[in-house]
């Protein structure tokens, strides 16, 4: 990643920043979905933006670069959601307000992606072949970034991002289908 200079502490520090973003997003997602009317649409970009503002306010100078932040935020979004989906799968859900709120977020995403755990596994498989495509999917799908934002976050041309996206989407679609043997996402 070209923005390595923002994380002078290396991997450990990146790890730390990641969990910071993760916690922030997790909390935001839960809060933002609470009290919203059913059928309301999730706004991942709004979440990410809000998280960014909070982190900025906290005075953490390492986040001065928004593009850099987006990379982490999108990854964090992915992990928040997949984590939650996994817990939902593993444990019988207790009736907790927070849980239910995040369930809604997962549900919103799964409308577009099918089972998030399957998508996560698909992304892992894709990462073995082409990690950059995974980052594009994270930014565009989980982070809700436009192609332009994604391109600037990755230092790529918009056109490259778009074609990478089309490929990644088809590849994943195909991968998930062949993994599950059937189409896991609903027909439009």
């Amino acid at each position: 990643m070209s923005e390595q200079q923002h994380t002078p502490g290396g991997a450990e520090s990146s790890e730390g920043l990641f969990s910071l973003v993760y916690d922030e997003l997790y909390g935001l997602a839960k809060r933002s979905m609470n009290g919203q009317s059913p059928g309301h649409t999730l706004q991942p970009t709004a979440l990410v933006n809000e998280a960014y503002l909070k982190v900025l306010k906290s005075g953490n100078s390492q986040w001065s670069n928004r593009e850099h932040f987006l990379n982490f935020a999108a990854k964090a979004m992915r992990h928040v959601l997949v984590d939650h989906a996994r817990k939902k799968d593993a444990v019988k859900r207790r009736s907790s307000g927070e849980r239910v709120a995040l369930d809604q977020v997962v549900q919103e995403f799964e409308k577009r992606s099918g089972n998030l755990l399957a998508l996560d596994a698909g992304l892992e498989a894709l990462a073995n072949r082409d990690p950059q495509l995974v980052t594009i999917v994270e930014l565009h799908f989980f982070g809700g970034c436009s192609f332009e934002e994604t391109a600037s976050a990755l230092g790529m041309k918009t056109k490259e991002v778009k074609s990478g996206w089309v490929f990644a989407r088809s590849w994943l679609n195909n991968h998930l289908k062949s993994e599950l043997g059937h189409k896991i996402h609903p027909n439009p």
Partner: peptide, 22 residues
């Protein structure tokens, strides 16, 4: 071919719509 065939016009991974405000 299987990747091309998987490019269906449905909403798979299309980002959830983003609106600035309600």
């Amino acid at each position: 071919k299987s990747i091309l065939d998987a490019e269906s016009p449905d909403e798979f991974l299309q980002s959830p719509p983003v609106i600035e405000a309600v």
